[in-house]
Design a protein around this nucleic acid. Sequence first.
DNA 1: TAGAATCAATTTATCGATTTACCAATAAAA
DNA 2: TTTTATTGGTAAATCGATAAATTGATTCTA
Lengths: 347, 347
Amino acid sequence: MIKKKLSIVDIANKLNISKTTVSFILNGRAREKRISEELVERVLKFVKEVGYKPNSLAKSLRTGKSHIIGLMVENIADPFFANIARYIEDGAYKNGYRIIYCSTDNDADKTRDLIGMFRDRHVDGYIIAPPVGVEEDIAELLKDDLPVVLFDRYFPGIDCSYVVTDNLDSTYTATEYLVEQGYKKIAFITLESHQTQMQARLDGYKKALEQNNLQSYIKEVVFNQETKYMLEPIADFLKNNKDLDAIIFGTNRIGTCGLKVIHNMGIRVPDDIAVISFDDHDVFELYSPSVTAIAQPVEEIAANTINILLSKLDSSTPNTDNKKVTLQNDLIYRGSSQVNTKLSAVK
Amino acid sequence: MIKKKLSIVDIANKLNISKTTVSFILNGRAREKRISEELVERVLKFVKEVGYKPNSLAKSLRTGKSHIIGLMVENIADPFFANIARYIEDGAYKNGYRIIYCSTDNDADKTRDLIGMFRDRHVDGYIIAPPVGVEEDIAELLKDDLPVVLFDRYFPGIDCSYVVTDNLDSTYTATEYLVEQGYKKIAFITLESHQTQMQARLDGYKKALEQNNLQSYIKEVVFNQETKYMLEPIADFLKNNKDLDAIIFGTNRIGTCGLKVIHNMGIRVPDDIAVISFDDHDVFELYSPSVTAIAQPVEEIAANTINILLSKLDSSTPNTDNKKVTLQNDLIYRGSSQVNTKLSAVK
DNA sequence: TAGAATCAATTTATCGATTTACCAATAAAA
DNA sequence: TTTTATTGGTAAATCGATAAATTGATTCTA
């Protein structure tokens, strides 16, 4: 007894009226089209009764709007992106939009392919944490007047809305903080990457060291999904630089990997070595003693991103300039009695 | 110079042939429809040249297939679900399917709404970690012959494919393990939930205690997105049960929350209290000393789930019976020299 | 009183594909 | 010679919605 799905034509036939009338009523254009109250009610009642729902594919084909937002993150399994995905989902959902997501793995070719797939599915808007190498593809989207918001990183040469954090200032402040505490041999262990946010983090570190005439110790690790392949190079680096007294990790992933190495090598934090990591994570809070972290305002990032996109999608708002938002990170001091401080206040 | 997207009609016109012919050629039905080699080549060449891609909305409307899979998890920000989402995405992607996801928050009403939304978007298949209360909605999907695979939990009364893990055996073995070590006052702190997997975890704990004539200490915490609201009840429970010598946590979330409380209260693990948590997490590995965990085979769960769904979607495979898979969890012994063991080997 | 405006819908076109049904010309079979 | 098959396609129907153009009846205006 499979009840075939009803179409608008079925509704119209059952009520002996035209499907257009039904369409107008269902789209709230009854008054505008001067359709009698009585008929409106009759239709609405019947529609509710039989549980009719318009086929959104057909609707999308005709209107060109899919009410779907394409979300491209580096890796949905990464807690930073997973959390952002959740907040974005909530914001979108409340406004009648759905999310179709995918992970780019920072692979430009894969990303290009995914953008193409989003395009031919006619997503209404794009939220992208873009890998290096897709500048032209983003530019293409913009040229075709499609709503795009980048986050986490951006392309300096492209005029596009984005939401990022003050990466450079954060690592600068964190490094300065370590210097003030008397640390001299401070390493920066990060992922090998040419993305703006990763470069900025590195630059902040370099800037602080230069200003203090300290030597830099930089290790760039190649990303790998398999944790063991990330542990080895970190372990090697630490073995070859036994005199380090502090480390800053460039991402949460490298930070947890680094802690595993430190843990395995029996190095004590902060007695043997001080540690600060970019991105906050339960691990940093629970590690003994807990680890100071540069916490990105995940909820704010997501809220800004989705709101900018929604306002672009809202045809009633005039097509204003692209919004470029830089949010402040929180340096969460741990392992001492200090109070957390907005980085601005530290500067 | 925005180039309007080409349609199949444009292609046909430019080549002075019928759109039907173009369609046949593009869908690989040229031979079947006896279209000349020469024309096939001419069309394919031209299509590639102008970069024409069929509008997948129109295609979906006509064929009824969207090549989209709907994925409903409890919360995409939870590392367990985020990881599964990632593996499922990969499996789907390789087979030409895309994922549209949403978080149910274990809310039956929200889930019902989301199922409805997936339906009218004509997703080809459903992957759902269902909350209690949507039995009828799942049954409805099945009645309409839509491909559904549940995971993480299932409904005993409904004949539907699912992939779960041996929750009962896992907590049973974990509890037995603690008893063998000489622990007597073992608590089970879990989320308040009537889902099958949570009940099974609780049952495993109870079973082991009963067999050993030990008293049970059970605390069920109400889930809350805000961490602080989960810390309080756990802290209260621990304060009121100061003589506990071991705790088993029912999920990774409650486990990390529990560790935070333990950490804050200055309780030492395992000197003051032994800890085992369901689900593995970096936190458990890095906590000092590290925490024994019941690791669910995330990749296997995802692989089984997506494969079962894909085989349902593959019309060439006959519509076989529903597959009901129970995978084994890994008890990862930490904080001692023991080797990890498949639970089966322990039994 | 002819023409315009209003009312309350309806008819028809359209979005961009797939699919069914058909066709004209030639070759092979009966 | 008539019938049937094969070749190489095409025209039209269809999926389920929205949008534009149209309609016939009534009422208002000059």
